[in-house]
Amino acid sequence: MFMFLFLAASALISALLVVRSREIVHSVIALATCFISIAALYIMLSAEFVAIIQILVYVGAVVVVILFGIMLTKREIMESEKR
């Protein structure tokens, strides 16, 4: 029960940080945290295979593709949006 609450809180808070953080790369770090806590939740539901594929595909590939997308855009655009 305690473990579930901890993981659920971490997933929710990091999901909130994805939307709220000012630096866009920080939101990607929060997104990875969110995916990893969801994978841990899958393990708690004794669905190990889904958890492993979650880490392999989402943290290993999707997050990196998103990062690529961010880094191929101009930094100045992001900075002007911040203000």
Partner: peptide
């Protein structure tokens, strides 16, 4: 560990993310 080899590859795959960050 069941699915041990797959776990090894899953954690191996996290590295590009950290390198890029």
């Amino acid at each position: 560990v069941p699915a041990g080899v797959l776990i090894a590859f899953a954690f191996f795959a996290i590295a590009p993310f950290s390198i890029l960050v």
